[in-house]
Nucleic acid binder design. Structure first.
Lengths: 130, 130
DNA sequence: ATTTGTTTACGAAGATATTCGTATATTCAT
DNA sequence: ATGAATATACGAATATCTTCGTAAACAAAT
């Protein structure tokens, strides 16, 4: 179970991961109070989800005190890459640049962000010339 | 039902849409024979899915002859944008450029594609300067 | 006309994801 | 110690997605 590949989180699981990535290790109640702001589900629903995620290996928990502390067991970056790769594959027919054009076209990006992307492109091209 | 917003296709539905986007209007059997190559499911499974998609408004069909002809009722571009927007929102905290950097970093893109992206960036910056 | 093959229609089983009610345990204040 | 508040554990109801078995409709060939 330890070396297994990371499995794709569901929608609800992703919401919980986002809270934990942002806030760091937290109790069920803390997570639930954040989620409540944008959706309505009972406390035990959040609890159950986090228990399942723990079984799946998506979360770690410290059960030494009565109130358990949960933390993300998968990194945000890995998860982003996993989901992005899948989308490129299944939605954009494997073409990352097609996805990039769509993404840039439909969202305002700050000048700094655009500049960063351009620098990055230059680096890639420099590498390719070798 | 006609003016309703496009709803998100499921995984299986997306597979069918991809075939129809590529091949154009097709019969269930034609779609099924493509799908068979990469997954194994019975014919009636494909049929049922396409019937459901028709109910949902994802597919149109011509039932004038015995063998019905199905066609995508949603465009590839709209669907890509819809799914991409959702991913930016839920996975990349609303930052399109963060997604772009990830996408460029983990996939080989051809020189022409990279050039196209750079030109696109320049256009965006030119517009912003105004 | 009967058989054979292909199609759609329908219903329901199976799988997975989401939700919550209820029971039990623990802590803390009184 | 007792009661109130809060936690976890567990099981099950609900919803959604996927799959397929079976029946009925239709067409073509014999």
């Amino acid at each position: 179970m330890s070396a297994g590949k990371q499995l794709k989180p569901t929608e609800s699981e992703l919401e919980i991961l986002r809270v934990l990535w942002e806030k760091g290790p937290s109790t069920v109640r803390e997570v639930h109070e954040i989620l409540e702001q944008s959706k309505d589900a009972g406390y035990t629903t959040t609890l159950k989800l986090m228990q399942i995620m723990h079984e799946k290996g998506l979360l770690e928990r410290d059960a030494s005190s009565k109130t358990h502390i949960y933390a993300a067991a998968v990194s945000q970056e890995n998860t982003q890459r996993q989901l992005l790769d899948k989308m490129i594959d299944t939605v954009f027919n494997g073409s990352a640049s097609q996805l990039v054009l769509q993404a840039l076209g439909n969202h305002k990006s700050s000048k700094e962000e655009l500049e960063k992307i351009k620098q990055y492109l230059n680096e890639i091209e420099k590498q390719q010339r070798k």
